[in-house]
Design a protein around this nucleic acid. Structure first.
Lengths: 200, 200
DNA sequence: TAGCTTCCTAAGCGCTTGCTTAGTCGCTGT
DNA sequence: ACAGCGACTAAGCAAGCGCTTAGGAAGCTA
């Protein structure tokens, strides 16, 4: 279930994918700076030098993981925001899916959300743009709902921050042993957000 | 304002306090593993070896910061939970103060919340206990309110997680340039939590 | 002045780090 | 058969790491 490697279906060759999967485990457990290139290569069943056949540096591995993770998250949010129904219905789907993703993919999500400071400046700029677009999608949906009278949101930017915090922070504490399961958690969080926004 | 050194009024001598303040800045900016003992000592205006006059290791500096930060946070939460008024009034104060603290002290809070994995096992056990007590205080307050009929909380543990996530995550994104100011943010978040819990 | 204590530094040790170099293995097409 | 190529390894280098050692400067007591 939720094999990290199906996050990158088009990464070739297979060894590069195994290296990325090993790096996800290591970065999520110990953090980027506490992980050595030897850790990653050994966990992927190769010698330390094998990493440099597929990636130019350790930082490039982090960037590949972070960028694809951000792209997935943004696509999910934008798809939900553009779905059917009124603003409340779409927000409910958005929060449920975003929360469930952070629970199911908590290792990748942890890297996406908590290893930003380890990115090189140029890499950071790329993911920062993806993050801005994610936040804007949530903000626009709140504003739309408030204008239509389905939300009683007093302060759109603060509400958007609060909603994203709720979802994102799941990656910090969620483990496979946590309860409830990712799907149920997503629905409960969606319910809490509906109440928070005063959805009628 | 909010000088980090007034967090440890009884740490002596003064040089130890300056080292801790320098370590807070460095750990919050770059993370524990990306910070060198030379970074800390130099920022405190001393030679690299001076750190070892006051602390037995770099890990001990982290522990001193993390433990005192956790103690402060727990004291704040327990004080608010034991204050005057009904469960809703106390929850409002708790969330407002906890959120404001994470914004005002965002550097210390970042270490408290995001450098747990860098603690040595024995040190982690100590702060894990403080964290359990913090979470329990919030959980008990929700349960009390639900029993008294002031909250319509469907799932106490999930609601507690959500509330703590909201407050804690502030440390991740808040900067001195962020808006609104810490006090206002605390009150808005308290309002959102009241709505989330269906406080009448 | 002498002796002790506290606080700090100059120098550097042993080790690990990210990454490189030179070369080997096995598969593919002709 | 054999050249060409992509994937991989053994060995190791230069740099930076946490931490130690030996000692000095300043202040206090007598």
């Amino acid at each position: 279930m939720t094999d990290p490697q199906d996050l990158w279906p088009d990464v070739r060759p297979d060894a590069a994918k195994r290296l990325m999967a090993a790096a996800v485990d290591a970065f999520a457990d110990r953090g980027f700076h506490a992980t050595t290139t030897r850790d990653i290569a050994t966990a992927a069943g190769m010698s330390p030098a094998a990493l440099y056949v597929h990636f130019p540096s350790k930082a490039a591995v982090l960037f590949a993981i972070s960028r694809t993770g951000h792209e997935r998250a943004l696509a999910m949010v934008e798809t939900a925001a553009a779905g059917p129904g009124d603003a409340a219905a779409r927000m409910r789907v958005l929060v449920a899916r975003f929360t469930t993703w952070h629970a199911t993919r908590h290792r990748v999500a942890r890297i996406v959300q908590y290893e930003l400071h380890a990115l090189r400046p140029a890499d950071f700029d790329v993911v920062a743009d993806l993050r801005r677009r994610t936040e804007r999608a949530v903000r626009d949906l709140i504003a739309e709902g408030a204008a239509a009278g389905v939300f009683t949101a007093p302060d759109t930017p603060t509400a958007a921050r609060a909603i994203l915090s709720l979802c994102v922070d799941v990656a910090r504490w969620y483990t496979p042993e946590s309860k409830p399961d990712p799907g149920t958690l997503g629905e409960r969080y969606a319910e809490l957000v509906m109440a928070m926004l005063g959805a009628r």
